[in-house]
Design a protein around this nucleic acid. Structure first.
Length: 444
RNA sequence: GGCGCGUUCGUCUAGUGGUUAGGACACGGCCCUCUCAAGGCCGGUGCACGGGUUCGACUCCCGUACGCGCUGCCA
């Protein structure tokens, strides 16, 4: 018989989702999706009884954003709840009684400790292999505390109880727990339970190898949400930390990862988090995603910047031409605001560079304006050929017309392809903008 | 200190006894070009060190160094 695959992600509610936690959750999720089974989300709030829901919200948000859905847990329930440790006291009492009756527990200054059997414990880890821990020496491996004098529970105990009660088949967690595992196995044995399979995955560190803490750049998933990363890109990057498809692919969709994912192929060495590469991968995702998806991701960022997106067709056309330029969604307002308002500001640097020391620029712009006024078919191809033939006629470089036109129409020197930009803006708007610029910069 | 785990370009990685040690990010150069990007091409940088084993080690074994984790009445 092969029992159902049941895994869990068991964070404690700290108010944010750590990138390492997210990766642990992701590997659990991948494992379940590869084999079929259930992912349980369990909130380990033994220590902090207050504000659990609030502090756990960041975890829910982060997981949902990454597309990591759970099958049992908060908001969903399930047959093995409650899914908050703070609500499971009776269960823990029951198991404690069992251990006490069997003589495994002793009191020490009001706290309760588990008496170790003092044996070697073999941890047969799916990632790390067989490891022999010698727990015979009480000096180096003291009997663990399972309950404090105030009655609150210690992680090692409740974690094991919950995994037994929730019928967890595979414990996939950070390598920081590897050394705790033999202690946990002692508990399983004392309770007559079969230990689950264990898989300890490497940790995620900073670029310099130091431990990533809350303050470090990129440590919290909230950062990626705020900066405007595409969730599928961050998820892809996370997959590549400690795991690889082994065929040099970097951008690989999640369905493919699910198909290839195996715990045995996870690396054993800690990985440094490379924000540059995550950023690059995000750019790849944005460039290659559908326009529909881009529009969907862009919406909240435009709304937040109070950009009027009521003209959906126009908004979509604008987004289509800036899509290939954007690396982070938070850049969107900067790249698009001038499409939506007429009183956009002129970047002084750009004005100076284009009109400042070249009196001809405004005149050229005027000439271009008159040529454009005659254009009937207002598309980028026509605009390009019109502009280029005018440049030839005037004996100037294409850029001599392009730059003034760009500054006139957008107020800045950087932007998407000029011709596409003008096409999207439409003839009437463009001519008006040219007129405004000619009036403003031509008379000096 | 003790115990455990790890060590291939700066970073993520491929590689499991015989390879010019491959890819990607980042970096530098060139090309393309209306700006900024993107893209294309080229380039440098790596098997921690020392012993074995072997005809032959990045690859196997031992040691050293370094890193990380655990060693809590944190999780």
């Amino acid at each position: 018989m092969s029992p159902e695959v049941r895994v869990r992600f068991a964070p404690s509610p700290t108010g944010y989702l750590h990138i390492g936690g997210a990766r642990t959750a992701l590997f659990n999720w991948l494992f379940v999706h590869h084999h079929g089974g259930k992912l349980v989300l369990r909130i380990e709030d033994t220590d902090t009884k207050r504000n659990t829901e609030e502090a756990a919200a960041a975890i829910y948000d982060g997981l949902r954003w990454l597309g990591i859905n759970w099958d049992e847990g908060p908001h969903l329930g399930g047959n093995f709840g409650p899914y908050f440790q703070s609500q499971r006291t009776e269960i823990y009492e029951r198991y404690l009684k069992k251990l006490q009756d069997a003589g495994h527990i002793f009191e020490d200054q009001g706290a309760l400790r588990f008496r170790s059997p003092r044996e070697h414990v073999i941890v047969d880890d799916l990632v790390c292999g067989k490891i022999d821990f010698d727990l015979t020496n009480p000096g180096t491996h003291p009997d663990m505390t399972i309950r404090r004098p105030d009655g609150s529970w210690i992680f090692h105990f409740v974690n094991v109880i919950d995994d037994i009660e929730m019928k967890i088949s595979h414990v996939i967690r950070g390598e920081d727990h590897l050394s705790n595992t033999p202690k946990h196995i002692e508990l399983y044995k004392a309770l007559g339970a079969t230990p689950p399979n264990f898989a300890h995955i490497p940790l995620i560190l900073n670029r310099d190898g130091s431990k990533m803490s809350k303050r470090d750049e990129g440590a919290s998933i909230a950062t990626y949400i705020e900066q405007g990363y595409a969730p599928e890109a961050v998820r892809n990057y996370l997959c590549l930390l400690g795991w690889s498809p082994k065929d040099n692919r970097e951008k690989i969709d999640i369905e493919e990862v699910i198909k290839l994912f195996e715990l045995e192929k996870i690396n054993r060495r800690n990985a440094a988090f490379d924000l540059d590469k995550c950023f690059w991968l995000n750019g790849q995702y944005i460039a290659q995603m559908s326009l529909d998806r881009f529009v969907e991701l862009a919406r909240p960022f435009l709304e937040k910047a109070k950009i009027d997106t009521s003209n959906q067709k126009y908004t979509r056309e604008v987004l289509a031409i800036v899509k290939e330029k954007i690396k982070l969604l938070k850049e969107l307002p900067d790249w698009t605001s001038y499409f939506f308002i007429e009183d956009y500001e002129f970047d002084p640097e750009a004005v100076k560079k284009v009109f400042g020391n070249n009196p001809k620029a405004a005149n050229r712009l005027k000439t271009l304006r008159d040529e454009f006024a005659k254009v009937d078919k207002w598309d980028w191809q026509t605009l390009e050929s019109t502009l280029k033939s005018l440049a030839q006629k005037l004996g100037c470089k294409t850029g001599d017309l392009v730059h003034p036109a760009r500054v006139a129409a957008s107020g800045r020197s950087v932007g998407p392809s000029l011709y596409h930009m003008l096409e999207v803006m439409g003839k009437e708007r463009v001519l008006k903008r040219f007129d405004r610029a000619i009036a403003q910069f031509g008379a000096r």
